[in-house]
Amino acid sequence: MATVQVSEAEKVYILHGIRDDLRVDGRSCEDYRHMEVETDVVSNTDGSAKVTLGHTAVLVGVKAEIGKPKPMIPNEGYLEFFVDCSANATPEFEGRGGEELGTELSNTLYKVFNNQHSLDLRSLCISPGEHCWVLYVDVLLLQCDGNLYDAISVAIKAALFNTKIPRVHISSDDGGGKEIELSDDPYDRMRLDVENVPCIVTLCKIGHRQVVDATLQEKACSVASLIISVTHKGIITCTRKVGRGSLDPESICEMTEAGKRVGKALHSPLMKLLQQEESLGKKRQKVGFLG
C-alpha cells in the first residue's frame, strides 16, 4: 500500500476535525469522494468498467470462457477473481511487491461472492457436469489513493452489468456426442442479473467515530477498519476487520449499522447511472482514460 507520512500535529488536526464531523476535504463522516463510473472501456473484454474515486483508479475487465464445472457443484458456473497491483500505482508494487495485497483483495472478493444470491451462477451453466461459463474478473489498480475495496466493488458491479455473454446451444450429433454451437447473431447475447451484487463499504475507526471512504492521510490515523459488503436489500455478505488494531464490540455494532446504511444508499444511484449510460447507446461519448 502506498504510504504517506503524517506528523503528530497533522494527526491531531484530522482527529479533531472528524470529532466535529468535518474532514480535511470538507466532507462529513459518511460521505464519499467524487466518483466516476464508465463502462465498456476495453473492447476485447465481455464487460469492463473503470471507476475513479478521488485519485483512486480501478479498471475491471470480465472475460467469459467455457470451462468445466466444479465436481461438487455440477450445475453452476463460477467466478475467478484476480487483482493485479500495477507498478504504475506505486513503485512499491514493482516486481512481486503487490502480490501480497493482490491476494488479500482477491480472497476477500471470493468471500463477498460466496453466497447463492449475489449472482445467479445457475444461469452460467451450459450442460451440467460438462460445460459452464467461467467468468474471469480481472481487477487492475491504476492509482491508489485509499479505499481500494469500495472502488473495486463498484467497478466489479459495473463491469458485470456491462457483461454480455454469447448465447450457445447444445446439439447432439449422430454419434451421441455433444457439440456446442455459438449463436450466429452477434447481438444475441445473455446479460447477467446484477441486482444482488453487493458493494463493499470500508469504515475506518478514527478516534471515537468511523469514517467512510478514508483518504491515505486519514487511514494513517486509524489502527483498525472494518470491511462490510452489503446488497441493495441490506443483507451483509462479508465482513472483515483489517489493520493492526482491535475494536470494541460496541463500536463494531455501530460500524455495521453505519456500513449497512451507507451501502444500501450506494446501490440505487449506481444502478440508475448504469442504466442511464446504457440507454445512451452508441451516441455516448467515451471519455476513457483522459477524463
Partner: peptide
C-alpha cells in the same frame, strides 16, 4: 476487544 472478525455468506 475484538481483534479479528471475519464473516461470509448471507
Amino acid at each position: 476487544q475484538v481483534s479479528g472478525l471475519q464473516s461470509d455468506g448471507e
